[in-house]
């Protein structure tokens, strides 16, 4: 049994009718680390989270949280996990404070502990000013923070966040990243799903890319970028004519491509430092002065594009709103 891992998943299969939502997934998350589960719409991210949080039974395979089986020991698992689902699950009619106290009570903490913990979380998640207003008056970002606070009320050692920042503006997103970063530095093990490569890049120690229920790649953000992305030296020219001439010359260094209205030449390289010198020397020798030059590191978007042959959200489905509700 793998108590060495906070989360251990082996051969997990789930089908919904004809749809194979998960086909034999294996994942191991060491204690105190962050796993980013990355995938486009319908990849199976939520399905995996729902199985790991005891909400759904797998058709085959095994999943253990801190060594406890999600199917056979659901209550023990529930006591050790926190979940903030894809849609913020807060009671619209209760105030922020009432929401947290209710969850505190339901996780069977003494009333005084629940109250103290509520105050602490309201403070930490910047909700004190809105603590006594019904949650239906909250903005999307506030609702997400409340939902996350509710997931943390019983100090779970393992946390699941399903697309925690979908639908948030850039400021709220980066605020939430800050909060999640703090949690993780407290030693919490985190499994996070996301469609945002930047998010996985920023928060996750290890990234698992899934598509159509299968793991198609995994590694650290740097790994993935090194293996699959490629560094580009981008050289911009004042005219398209010069850019075209330069592109022919620079092909000697690496594969080139023209962009930006054919005024910019991108050269694919592996060692960007050396390549930069080569580019400069070559351009000098043929007397072609560039307007500007830059090195562009590969992004996870490039990785994703290469792996799945499409962008992260190239589905016809729209990104879903952060909350669904019966308003």
């Amino acid at each position: 049994m793998s108590t060495n891992y906070a989360i251990h998943v082996e051969g997990l299969v789930k089908r919904f009718g004809d749809v194979l939502a998960l086909s034999a997934i294996d994942i191991d998350v060491p204690h105190g680390t962050v796993l980013g589960l990355l995938g486009p719409n319908g990849a199976g991210k939520t399905t995996a989270v729902r199985i790991l949080t005891t909400l759904l039974e797998p058709d085959a395979g095994e999943a253990r949280i801190l060594g406890m089986d999600v199917v056979r020991q659901p209550n023990a698992v529930r006591a050790s996990i926190g979940l903030a689902g894809q849609y913020a699950a807060v009671d619209e009619n209760l105030t922020g404070r009432e929401n947290l106290r209710m969850v505190g009570q339901l996780t069977r903490q003494p009333a005084s502990t629940a109250r103290a913990r509520t105050d602490e979380l309201l403070e930490r998640f910047d909700l004190v000013h809105a603590a006594d207003r019904p949650a239906k008056t909250y903005s999307g970002g506030m609702r997400r923070r409340l939902d996350l606070a509710a997931a943390l009320i019983h100090r779970p050692p393992v946390l699941f966040l399903d697309e925690p920042t979908t639908g948030l503006d850039p400021k709220s997103r980066s605020d939430l990243w800050g909060l999640i970063g703090e949690l993780v530095s407290d030693g919490t093990t985190l499994l996070l799903t996301t469609q945002y490569l930047e998010e996985a890049d920023r928060l996750a120690d290890h990234i698992v890319v899934i598509d159509e229920g299968r793991i198609i790649e995994e590694g650290s953000a740097t790994d993935l970028k090194e293996r699959l992305g490629r560094t580009l030296v981008e050289v911009k020219f004042p005219t398209t004519r010069r850019a075209r001439i330069a592109a022919r010359q620079l092909a000697a260094i690496g594969p080139t491509e023209l962009s930006d209205g054919d005024t910019t030449v991108g050269v694919g390289v592996t060692d960007s430092g050396k390549a930069l010198l080569d580019v400069v020397r070559l351009l000098e020798s043929v007397d072609l002065a560039p307007k500007s030059m830059a090195v562009r590191q590969p992004t996870l978007d490039d990785v994703f594009l290469q792996l799945t042959g499409r962008g992260p959200s190239a589905d016809d489905e729209q990104p879903e709103p952060a909350t669904r509700g019966a308003a």
């Binding site: 913020a88 009671d91 339901l106 996780t107 019966a326």
Partner: peptide, 22 residues
């Protein structure tokens, strides 16, 4: 109850170590 299902609150409850009947 239908509204609680729609809002995802039932999922939250089901993920807590609480009595199933509650």
């Amino acid at each position: 109850l239908a509204m609680d299902m729609q809002s995802g609150l039932i999922e939250r409850f089901r993920s807590l170590p609480m009595a199933r009947s509650a």
